[in-house]
Amino acid sequence: MSYLEEEDYSYAGEALIARPSIPEEVSDEDWGDYLFMRKNPKGKHIEQWQHSSGCRKFFVVERSTIDNTIYSSHKMCETQNRLNNEKS
């Protein structure tokens, strides 16, 4: 995504990071992972973006961190199943 689009959209962190459903049952270390550990890959990365100067919707984008190629984009609701699977 180029700077032209970045005036409309803003990056909102790595996607598909599920909040533990009962945080109190999670160890300090796992909670720390949830809070701070991010993938930072060279290549395909699954990210949240927001149409911040438009409809304000958050959505999910598969983007290459090397050359900004966009592989796919998804509505937030489309990722819920995947998120729920990871939670359980």
């Binding site: 949240q48 927001q50 911040s52 304000r56 919707k57 958050f58 937030m76 609701c77 819920q80």
Partner: peptide, 13 residues
Amino acid sequence: YQWLELWLQTEWP
């Protein structure tokens, strides 16, 4: 406002 929207849209739809 952004923070509240983020949680509503991503974690608690």
